[in-house]
Amino acid sequence: MSEAQRKRLETETMAMQKMQKEYQTLVINRQQLDSQLQENELVDKEFKLMKDDARVYKLTGPVLLPQDKTEAATNVEKRLEFIRSEIKRVDGRIETLAKEQEKKSVEIFKLQMDIQGISKQ
């Protein structure tokens, strides 16, 4: 096994590990976004079902502050929009990263094969 090949395998493996780590954080991120989306969707639904004379409060620290109803509703809608676009972004990144990972693992496999081939000779 040549020194250069071993070095290359090492750097490639490191790059692969880094990718896997990023992938994992992205997946966790995606899950968080999903639960946020669900919670906000429920709030949005509640706002739509709400009676016209109902009062809305927002929890700020330990106190409930009265809120303007339409303002609160648009606020939640904006948040939903933001979360949806974030999900799209993260999904895209996950997809490209998965493809890169696949490529990398093939590369590493080839490299390992090469090294083994040489060491057997």
């Binding site: 429920l42 509640e46 009676k51 109902a54 409060y57 927002k58 700020t60 948040r79």
Partner: peptide, 9 residues
């Protein structure tokens, strides 16, 4: 109602 919002009912 979630996400810090409370509704009077």
């Amino acid at each position: 109602a979630g996400t810090g919002y409370y509704i009077e009912k």
